[in-house]
């Protein structure tokens, strides 16, 4: 009897595997982040011209050989690539992403102000999207191949097929010009937040519904659903169990969508002039202000990688099966 109990729990009591996992994960994370930083640093070399030239052109200085060489000397460009990468990386660890080519101000505070605004926008649309898509996905899965399912799938299909810049342009046309309910340019106000949030949320909702519905359907075909029915468990508890068991995968789905959300917010922020990090980066692209672009990729990449690792950890916490 006790034997059976301990035999069944073997996976649980064997902690060494678990500890290994907890050590391996952060190391993998750090490795990915180092690769990311290297790629970002290398980005600067992808661009035509060298940093000194870019810096001078970005500031509108006439580029002559002498000025260029002086600038190169000042920026330390005559030293080896890896040394410069190391120095830059050390700076990054201290939270120093360099100074802007445009106005010589440090890049980090600029990006952080923008990031805060972007986080507000992104989390609002994520929240809106989830509150809409989650119940709809449950409904569609529950009523598979019936009218509600067809309706929800149609909505999700169109949401999924609309680029967010198009949604925002059409929304602008309808709401601001035709009906005149909203201001065209988003100020920091709540009213200004509405249109960018909706523009970001619509395509995301389409994708969420699609993926969550598939996940719910997968859960519904599991054996335990039939088993619970044989015990006469009420459908409402059944839905609860199905949702509970889907949460792990849904967490992963959300984490992956955050990547798309980041790209989308760059577009939306520029349309509605929302002063977030995406607006900042597009302004920097126009001004050829490379340190800001590098900082942007580094910050967004880090957030994305960390969020996905957290979602992975959350998945294993919610579904501890198959864990060594």
């Amino acid at each position: 009897m006790n034997q059976a109990l301990s035999a069944g729990r073997e996976g649980r009591s064997d902690n060494s595997g678990r500890i290994l996992r907890w050590v391996k994960k952060p190391i993998g994370l750090i490795l990915i982040l180092i690769v990311l930083s290297f790629l970002v640093f290398a980005l600067l070399y992808l661009a035509p011209g060298d940093p000194a030239e870019k810096r001078l052109t970005s500031q509108g200085v006439a580029v002559t050989k002498e000025v260029l060489d002086a600038e190169r000397e000042r920026l330390g460009l005559f030293r080896p690539f890896l040394v410069r990468y190391g120095e830059w990386l050390l700076g990054v660890f201290r939270g120093d992403l360099g100074v802007s080519f445009k106005d010589d101000l440090p890049v980090t505070p600029k990006l952080m102000t923008g990031l805060l605004k972007t986080v507000i926008l992104a989390s609002a649309s994520l929240l809106l999207s989830l509150t809409v898509s989650f119940p709809l996905a449950v409904l569609a899965a529950w009523k598979k191949d019936r009218i509600p399912d067809h309706a929800v799938r149609l909505l999700s299909f169109f949401g999924n097929s609309l680029p967010n810049f198009l949604i925002s342009v059409l929304l602008m046309y309808l709401l601001c010009i035709r009906i005149r309910v909203f201001p065209v340019i988003a100020t920091g106000s709540l009213q200004g937040l509405f249109m960018p949030v909706v523009s970001l949320a619509i395509p995301m909702t389409g994708r969420f519904i699609r993926q969550m519905r598939a996940e719910f359907l997968a859960q519904l075909s599991e054996d335990y659903v039939g088993g619970m029915r044989m015990r006469g468990v009420k459908e409402r508890f059944l839905i609860l169990n199905v949702i509970r068991n889907s949460l792990g995968h849904i967490l992963t789905i959300i984490a992956l969508q955050i990547g798309t959300l980041m790209g989308g917010s760059v577009v939306i922020e520029n349309i509605f002039r929302w002063p977030g990090i995406g607006k900042l980066v597009m302004d920097s692209v126009t001004a050829r202000d490379y340190p800001v672009i590098m900082g942007f990729v580094l910050i967004m990449g880090t957030i994305y990688v960390v969020v996905n690792q957290l979602a992975d950890a959350g998945f294993h916490a919610l579904d501890p099966r198959g864990q060594a």
Binding site: L46, P48, G259, M262, V281, M294, Y304
Partner: peptide, 20 residues
């Protein structure tokens, strides 16, 4: 794996912006 662990559109915007 590494390529997929970065947000695609963010990378695309940065690369397209820098390549010009």
């Amino acid at each position: 794996d590494i390529l997929l662990s970065f947000p695609q559109m963010v990378v695309a915007i940065a690369v397209a912006g820098i390549l010009n």
